[in-house]
Amino acid sequence: MRVTTKGQVTIPKGIRDRLGIKPGSEVEFVPRSDGKVELLRKGDGGDAAHKRSKSIRSWAERVRGTVDSDGMTPDEYYDWIRGPRDDLGPG
């Protein structure tokens, strides 16, 4: 896509159709820490699922790369976090 002198881009029709973007729809471009940008279709202001998704995505971007598992495997890390599971039988 090319950016016009006014800073505009055209969102391809396939993407507009998939996201339900129509003339007058509001969208948001969200920069990510990896240098990429996400295109989000904004809800009507009362769209709780959209707000929740945006909040979770924002939190995930802020904490990316901050967990230090000190070389533990995922199972070892889970046991360290919650303690060993005594509700599972041996083996």
Rank of each mutant, 00 (worst) to 15 (best):
Arg2Leu: 10
Thr4Tyr: 03
Thr5Cys: 01
Thr5Lys: 03
Gly7Ala: 01
Gln8Gly: 02
Gln8Phe: 00
Gln8Cys: 07
Thr10Ile: 09
Ile15Leu: 12
Asp17Pro: 00
Asp17Tyr: 01
Asp17Ile: 05
Asp17Ser: 08
Arg18Glu: 15
Leu19Asp: 06
Leu19Val: 07
Leu19Pro: 05
Gly20Tyr: 00
Pro23Glu: 12
Gly24Cys: 07
Ser25Thr: 10
Ser25Val: 08
Ser25Pro: 03
Ser25Arg: 03
Glu26Asn: 11
Glu28Cys: 08
Phe29Met: 13
Val30Pro: 04
Ser33Met: 05
Ser33His: 05
Ser33Phe: 02
Asp34Tyr: 04
Gly35Met: 06
Lys36Gln: 12
Glu38Ser: 14
Leu39Tyr: 01
Leu40Gln: 10
Leu40Ile: 06
Arg41Met: 11
Lys42Pro: 07
Gly43Phe: 01
Asp44Lys: 07
Asp44Asn: 15
Asp44Tyr: 09
Gly45Leu: 01
Asp47Thr: 06
Asp47Asn: 14
Ala48Ile: 10
Lys51Tyr: 04
Lys51Thr: 11
Lys54Val: 10
Lys54Phe: 02
Lys54Gly: 06
Trp59Leu: 15
Glu61Pro: 01
Val63Ile: 15
Arg64Trp: 01
Arg64Tyr: 02
Arg64Gly: 11
Thr66Arg: 11
Asp70Gly: 13
Asp70Cys: 10
Met72Ser: 03
Thr73Cys: 06
Thr73Phe: 05
Thr73Pro: 07
Asp75His: 04
Tyr78Pro: 00
Trp80Phe: 13
Arg82Val: 15
Gly83Arg: 06
Pro84Gln: 11
Asp86Tyr: 08
Asp87Phe: 11
Asp87Lys: 10
